[in-house]
Amino acid sequence: TYYTVKSGDTANKIAAQYGVSVANLRSWNGISGDLIFVGQKLIVKKG
């Protein structure tokens, strides 16, 4: 599943929404920190 980042989103918020850990969200998308951008497409695997 892909999720498009919206204004006000955070890695924590997206992870919680899908029931996954922030560490997994980072791993699936090659993100090292919490910096995400509006319009960015993230791979999300439901927990």
Rank of each mutant, 00 (worst) to 15 (best):
A16L: 12
S7L: 14
Y2H: 09
I31D: 05
L35R: 11
S27A: 14
I36V: 10
Y3P: 02
W28N: 03
S27P: 00
G39Y: 02
G30R: 08
K13I: 10
T10W: 03
K45I: 11
I36S: 02
A23T: 10
T10H: 04
A11R: 01
L42A: 01
G19Q: 09
S32F: 11
V5H: 02
S21L: 07
I43W: 09
I43M: 10
Y18K: 04
I43T: 06
G8V: 03
N24H: 10
A11V: 15
V5L: 00
N24R: 08
G33T: 09
D9M: 01
Q40R: 06
A16T: 10
Y2N: 05
K46C: 15
I14V: 08
V22Q: 05
V44F: 05
G33A: 09
G8Y: 05
N24K: 10
K13R: 09
V38P: 13
I36A: 03
K45S: 14
G39V: 02
L25F: 04
A15E: 03
T1V: 14
S21A: 07
V5G: 03
S32A: 12
D34F: 08
W28K: 01
G19H: 09
Y3S: 01
N24T: 12
G8C: 05
T1A: 11
I36F: 09
I36D: 02
A11S: 07
A11M: 15
V22F: 04
Q17Y: 12
K13P: 00
K46Q: 14
A23G: 09
V22K: 05
A23D: 14
S27Q: 13
V5R: 00
V22I: 12
I36G: 02
T1L: 14
S21G: 05
G39M: 03
V20E: 05
A23N: 09
S7N: 12
L35W: 10
S27T: 11
S7E: 15
A11Q: 11
R26C: 15
K45Y: 14
L25V: 05
V5M: 02
D34T: 08
I31L: 15
K6W: 03
S7W: 13
S7A: 15
N24A: 11
N29A: 02
V22Y: 03
V38T: 08
Q40F: 04
G33M: 14
Q40V: 06
I14C: 00
Y2I: 11
G8E: 06
R26M: 15
G33R: 06
K46V: 14
A15I: 03
A16P: 01
Y18N: 08
G8P: 02
A23W: 06
T4Q: 08
D9P: 00
D34Q: 08
S32V: 15
V20N: 01
A23L: 07
G47L: 12
K46G: 13
K45E: 10
N24P: 00
L35I: 13
Y18F: 15
V5P: 02
N12Y: 14
W28R: 01
I14F: 01
L25A: 00
T10E: 05
L42D: 00
A16I: 12
I36R: 00
S27H: 12
G33S: 09
T4I: 15
F37N: 09
N12P: 11
V38I: 11
L42Q: 01
A16N: 11
V38C: 07
G47E: 14
N24S: 11
G47A: 13
N24I: 11
A15R: 02
W28M: 07
G30C: 13
K41I: 15
G19D: 09
G19Y: 06
D34Y: 07
R26N: 08
K45A: 13
I43P: 01
G19E: 08
Q40K: 05
W28V: 03
R26S: 09
S7T: 13
Q40H: 05
I14A: 00
W28L: 06
W28S: 03
Y3H: 14
S21N: 07
T10C: 05
K45T: 11
L25S: 00
T1R: 11
Y2L: 09
W28G: 02
T4L: 08
A23K: 09
T4V: 14
G33D: 12
G30M: 09
T1P: 10
V20Y: 02
S27D: 15
K46W: 15
S21M: 06
N12D: 15
A23I: 09
Q40T: 07
L42S: 01
A15W: 02
I36K: 02
L25N: 00
S21D: 10
A11L: 15
G30D: 12
F37T: 11
Y18Q: 07
A15K: 01
N12E: 15
N12G: 13
S27W: 10
V5S: 03
L35S: 12
K6V: 12
S32P: 09
G30Y: 08
V20D: 02
V20G: 01
Y3L: 04
Y18T: 07
D9I: 00
K41T: 12
D34V: 07
I36E: 03
Y3M: 05
A11I: 15
Q40G: 03
S27F: 12
D34R: 06
Y3Q: 02
N12W: 13
I14W: 01
S27I: 13
A23M: 08
V5A: 07
V44C: 02
V22G: 04
D34S: 08
K6R: 10
G8D: 06
G33Y: 06
N24M: 13
A11Y: 15
K46H: 12
G19L: 06
A15Q: 01
D9L: 00
K13F: 09
S7D: 14
Y3E: 02
W28F: 04
V5Q: 00
R26Q: 11
V5W: 05
T1E: 14
F37Y: 13
W28Q: 03
L35Q: 14
F37D: 07
A16W: 09
G39H: 04
G47R: 10
S7M: 14
L35N: 14
G33W: 06
L35A: 13
V22D: 04
K13Y: 09
N29E: 02
T4A: 05
S21H: 06
G39I: 03
G30S: 10
Q17L: 14
S21Q: 06
Y18C: 10
F37W: 11
V20L: 09
R26F: 14
G33V: 09
Q17I: 13
K6T: 08
K45N: 12
V38G: 04
V38L: 08
G33K: 07
I14H: 00
T4D: 06
T4Y: 12
A15S: 07
S7R: 09
F37P: 08
V22T: 08
F37I: 11
V20C: 09
F37A: 09
R26A: 11
D9Y: 00
G30L: 07
L42I: 09
V20F: 03
V22A: 08
G47N: 12
I14Y: 00
G47F: 11
